[in-house]
Design a protein around this nucleic acid. Structure first.
Length: 468
RNA sequence: GGCCUCAUCGUCUAAUGGUUAGGACAGUGGCUUUUCAAGCCAUUAAUCGGAGUUCGAUUCUCCGUGAGGCUACCA
């Protein structure tokens, strides 16, 4: 049994797309599940769309998810000689040929074909050139590409690991360009040569590659190589339909980090988008996914990328964090302050966070000297301004003289006091909470008071009385 | 236009030639409760349409319809 080897092969034209991240994840999982290896290859053969920063962000994003690869990153731009030599091999064996047709001619040809209701396809004009003519063109530096010579008969059958058998008629296949006029290979040549060179056994990629797979099979045949197994993954789509675009939210993996999602949540979420375990288990670590993952259980339909469930996963994983880890994750969203104080604060909000970034708005009142809120907010349900003011005025000396300033100590004391005063909990605790937080939703006031300390608690209650 | 792929609750999905079509998220209601959150309980909600095969189809076949992809010297 040969060792399973997979690869993720993004093109450095922008950020790491969330769909690409899932492709990388599934490739990684499949390799690891089978005790194999996972590689990273940068497909930088298109000079016009190349973005220098892309590779670093791919690496950053993959590592963030916990995905690591075997060996060095492979860069196709560093291997042009290899592709060139392989193209020459095909040229020599007559399986590829030079084409000198201009873009204008090709476009005209395709227009006519389309108007006739046929698939646009190169008409092999340059295949009829004599060796002498080809030589002359090359010597005169006429712009040339190298095309794969595809015979018009026969059928290519592939058995996709996700979709099952797919057939293509050779007559519908275009003579694919293998080497561009700038000397760089196209994706088709480079990926086949590299996948073979890297002994890739399973090509796991997006379904946009299904139509070119028969051309890749033909290339393997032309070289006399055994083709790998293919598995084509569905594509994420928007809520309103259509290819996942920025209009519907973030498409870049790293945007989710910026927004305050934990990698564990993102991994779990995207893993379940298009794949499901046999069990009804919802939570999987990367390690657990490695064991549970099965390509045969991958779905073929295009899932709508809806992040509602991501929020649920994220809040779940946030609640699992230790306070120390939570602080590390939340620090970018918090002002600089004493770590001990920050830990007290984030502990109060841990179960309320959907995203780490929520911590900023939820805890702002801990870092303000004066709170801004509507005085009417202090008044509980059917209570009145007067009654609320009276309650807070009575409460203030109680707080000022209370000694056990722990949350539980405060709770015991205050609940007892409320009973003794024959008041409702809401009559006291609601205005107290608003006085301390300035918000209509917050952790219990006992906890707020405990973190704020006696002085600030009393100051804020006094400020509330003054507001009323 | 041509070729390819796909189609179960709002979303992610499970299941089977015979089921009350299951779970999760979201929603709704309740419990708890000073609020929010969490937790617990309950609940709404789906097999795209039409033929065919069959005793029986959501499942198999065909035709529609819809969606997505490809149709570059981009990947």
């Amino acid at each position: 049994m040969t060792k399973v080897r997979t690869r993720f092969a993004p093109s450095p034209t922008g950020h790491l797309h969330i769909g690409g991240a899932r492709t990388a994840l599934y490739s990684y999982l499949w390799a690891k599940k089978n005790g194999g290896e996972f590689l990273l290859r940068i497909e930088d053969t298109d000079r016009t769309r190349y973005q220098p920063a892309a590779e670093a962000s791919f690496i950053d994003g993959l590592h963030w998810l916990g995905i690591y690869w075997e060996g060095e990153v492979i860069r196709q731009s560093e291997r042009t000689a290899v592709y060139r030599a392989h193209a020459q091999q095909l040229l020599d064996s007559g399986k590829a040929y030079y084409c000198f047709c201009t873009m204008e001619r090709l476009e005209l040809m395709r227009d006519i074909q389309r108007k006739k209701g046929r698939a646009p396809k190169y008409d092999k004009t340059c295949l009829r050139l004599t060796p002498t003519e080809v030589q002359q063109n090359l010597e005169q530096h006429v712009p040339a590409v190298i095309r794969l010579n595809i015979a018009a008969e026969g059928t290519i059958r592939i058995t996709d690991l996700v979709r099952g058998p797919i057939e293509f008629k050779c007559e519908e296949l275009d003579d694919q360009v293998l080497v561009k006029s700038d000397g760089f290979p196209t994706y088709h040549l480079a990926s086949v040569v590299d996948d073979h060179a890297s002994a890739i056994t399973h090509v796991i990629r997006g379904e946009e590659w299904i139509p070119s797979t028969p051309k890749h099979i033909l290339l393997y045949q032309a070289f006399g190589w055994e083709a790998p197994v293919f598995a084509h993954l569905s594509l994420f789509i928007n809520k309103g339909g259509g290819k996942l675009s920025k209009r519907e939210g973030a498409t870049s993996l790293l945007d989710y980090r910026t927004q305050g999602y934990l990698p564990a949540a993102v991994v779990n979420f995207i893993a379940m988008l298009g794949w499901n375990p046999k069990s009804t288990e919802e939570f999987f670590t990367l390690e657990q996914l490695v064991h549970a993952f099965e390509l045969s259980q991958v779905n073929t339909a295009n899932p709508i990328f809806d992040t509602e469930k991501l929020d649920w996963y994220n809040s779940h994983y946030i609640r699992q964090l230790s306070i120390d880890d939570l602080l590390t994750y939340c620090q970018p969203y918090l002002p600089t302050a004493d770590p001990v104080y920050l830990k007290q604060i984030i502990a109060l909000e841990q179960e309320r966070l959907k995203k780490l970034s929520d911590i900023t708005a939820l805890t702002d009142f801990f870092f303000l000297d004066v709170l801004q809120y509507e005085p009417a907010l202090l008044v509980w349900k059917k209570s009145t301004v007067e009654a609320t003011r009276a309650v807070l005025q009575k409460l203030l000396p109680v707080l000022a003289t209370h000694s056990d300033w722990s949350a539980t100590g405060l709770e015991t004391a205050l609940i007892g006091w409320i009973k003794a005063q024959e008041l409702g909990n809401g009559d006291v605790l609601w205005p107290l909470r608003v006085a301390l937080s300035g918000k209509k939703a917050s952790p219990p006031p006992f906890a707020l008071a405990a973190v704020l300390g006696k002085d600030r608690t009393c100051q804020r209650v006094q400020a509330a009385i003054d507001l009323l």
